[in-house]
């Protein structure tokens, strides 16, 4: 693979790091004590992927999504998924305009740079699939007309794993379209204390000023694609993915798309570090968030409390890193 390592690549990376740090700092004024989750969200943004935030209620799923959306000066739409939500409520509808006597397309909330889909598992499968189609194809087709979505385009979907009654859990095929799943987790005591103080007076979200433009993000996504991945690292990614397919604890392994996502995300992760090349540590850091939500454990593994996250960790520990 021939990679652009010319003089113009370096300033772009420098710039990226600076912008990314600005965005990250801005986000962390809202989400305190979760730099890993923030970095992961940024990684997925730069890798032009989508993120699934899955965690118990009240840990800041929506806040994270909002913080990311607001730190970038771009269009943000939020969709609260409910069982009666229709596909057209997302994509938009063609309505008859009496004045001009024509059908006119009314874009839905999907036409934004960042779409926040709250509690995505509460919508009907039909609606879910409409959203997922847009995610993959980055375009919307309504009444035979195709409308391109803007770049950057990122769907941040949240899902509540505990309250399962009356929900439609995302099928595996659709989970596979999310580049990464972020589990935010409870904050530690200090962070929680800080949060109580900050959120006590006014919402810090209101004070959040955009730290970058949508065009910046576009440029940086292009730069991320130029990040060098050595041959042996591509093989390493393949071997990690392959290992999930042969692991006896797993009923379903990772798809080739998962390998693609992992590589893309690793590039972004390396770029956030200011590197123009990927190292095994990037792949290792991203293996669990990128792969775990796509895997299905066997019944025995479930009984034995062996979660896909643990399986991936053991694979990472076991597989030799290409160091020569």
């Amino acid at each position: 693979m021939v990679v652009d390592t010319g003089p113009q690549a370096e300033p772009k990376l420098e710039e990226l790091v600076e912008v990314a740090h600005r965005v990250s700092a801005a986000m962390q004024t809202v989400i305190s004590g979760k730099p890993a989750a923030v970095r992961l969200a940024l990684t997925v943004l730069l890798a032009e992927g989508h993120v699934l935030i899955e965690d118990v209620p009240g840990v800041g799923k929506t806040i994270l999504a909002k913080a990311l959306a607001r730190s970038i000066d771009c269009s943000v739409r939020r969709v609260q998924f409910t069982p009666d939500l229709l596909p057209s409520d997302i994509t938009g509808v063609s309505a008859y305009n009496q004045e001009i006597r024509e059908f006119e397309f009314k874009p839905g909330p999907i036409f934004a740079n960042i779409v926040l889909g709250d509690e995505i598992n509460r919508a009907s499968p039909k609606t879910q699939s409409a959203l997922l189609e847009c995610m993959e194809e980055r375009q919307v087709t309504v009444d035979g007309a195709t409308y391109q979505l803007e770049r950057p385009f990122m769907v941040i979907a949240t899902q509540n794993p505990v309250e399962m009654e009356g929900t439609y859990p995302l099928p595996e095929a659709q989970r596979d379209r999310f580049t990464a799943r972020i589990a935010i987790g409870y904050p530690d005591t200090e962070a929680e204390l800080a949060m109580l103080e900050a959120h006590g007076s006014a919402s810090p979200l209101d004070d959040l000023k955009p730290a970058a433009h949508a065009s910046d993000v576009r440029a940086l996504s292009t730069a991320v694609r130029q990040v060098h991945v050595a041959e042996q690292l591509r093989r390493y990614v393949i071997s990690v993915v392959n290992a999930t397919r042969t692991a006896k604890e797993l009923r379903l392994g990772a798809s080739p798309r998962a390998a693609l996502h992992l590589l893309r995300a690793s590039r972004a992760y390396a770029a956030l570090d200011g590197r123009n090349f990927v190292i095994p540590d990037d792949v290792q850091a991203l293996a669990v968030p990128v792969l775990a939500h796509r895997l299905l454990p066997t019944a025995e593994a479930l009984v034995g409390q062996e979660l896909p996250e643990q399986v991936i960790s053991s694979i990472i520990n076991r597989l030799p890193v290409p160091v020569r």
Partner: peptide
């Protein structure tokens, strides 16, 4: 140095 030698372009 090892990282650069094996993972980086140069």
């Amino acid at each position: 140095a090892q990282e650069l030698a094996i993972y980086a372009p140069a």
